[in-house]
Simulated scan of single mutants.
Amino acid sequence: MVVVDEAYIEFSHGDSLLRLLDGRPNLVVSRTMSKAFGAAGLRLGYLAAHPAVVDAVQLVRLPYHLSAITQATALAALEHTDTLLGYVEQLKAERDRLVAALRALGYEVTESDANFVQFGRFEDAHTVWRKILDRGVLVRDNGVPGWLRVTAGTPAENDAFLDAVREVKKEQST
């Protein structure tokens, strides 16, 4: 089996592998409503695969694994797919703006097809994380040595982040 997780596909510049399913009985593509639909609390996703794989998954699926509230919320989100995917487009533009601004400040930024970017390289990422937090902005120190992670938000949130990063950079260079 090859399982491809497309949790961030709506944020990607690439193509989904769903189009490759036909004739590939060992390919499984999984997705979630957590990212693009802003529904992390629902813990809801799905997979697409050959019918035999789907049947096998159904055999081990727990009964009543989705509450009526989760189902109703998911259906409501799906009814507003165009609006929600419009927000994804805004987040993609903001993510790309963050990448450009961080690079202009001299940081390395990993390529991202998600709603977040990883930037660095810091001698002491935790200290930089703390200094950004002291300015009222929360980023993630996700344990990758020398790197921090920021999630794209609204333009105002991203401006606050960039202002904090500029201040920290200026402070460190004096």
Rank of each mutant, 00 (worst) to 15 (best):
M1S: 15
V2T: 14
V3K: 02
V4T: 10
D5G: 14
I9Q: 15
I9S: 13
I9T: 09
I9F: 01
E10R: 15
F11K: 11
H13I: 00
D15G: 01
L17H: 12
L20N: 02
D22H: 06
G23L: 01
N26I: 02
L27E: 08
L27V: 10
R31W: 01
R31F: 12
T32R: 06
A36E: 00
G41P: 02
L42A: 12
R43P: 05
R43Y: 03
L44V: 14
G45A: 11
L47R: 00
A48G: 00
H50A: 15
P51A: 11
V54F: 06
V54D: 05
D55H: 09
A56S: 12
A56D: 08
A56E: 10
V57P: 02
V57L: 02
Q58D: 06
R61P: 00
A68D: 02
Q71A: 06
A74M: 00
A76M: 04
A77Y: 04
H80D: 11
T83W: 04
G86T: 11
Y87L: 11
E89K: 14
E94N: 11
E94H: 07
R95Q: 08
A100C: 00
L102N: 08
L105H: 05
T110P: 04
E111D: 13
A114F: 03
Q118Y: 10
G120N: 02
E123Y: 02
H126A: 05
T127S: 12
W129L: 10
R130C: 08
L133Q: 15
L133T: 13
V137S: 04
D141W: 07
D141E: 11
G143M: 10
T151L: 07
A152Y: 05
A152C: 08
G153N: 10
T154C: 09
A156D: 12
E157T: 12
E157Y: 12
E157M: 12
N158R: 01
D159N: 10
L162P: 04
D163E: 14
V165K: 12
E167N: 02
V168T: 10
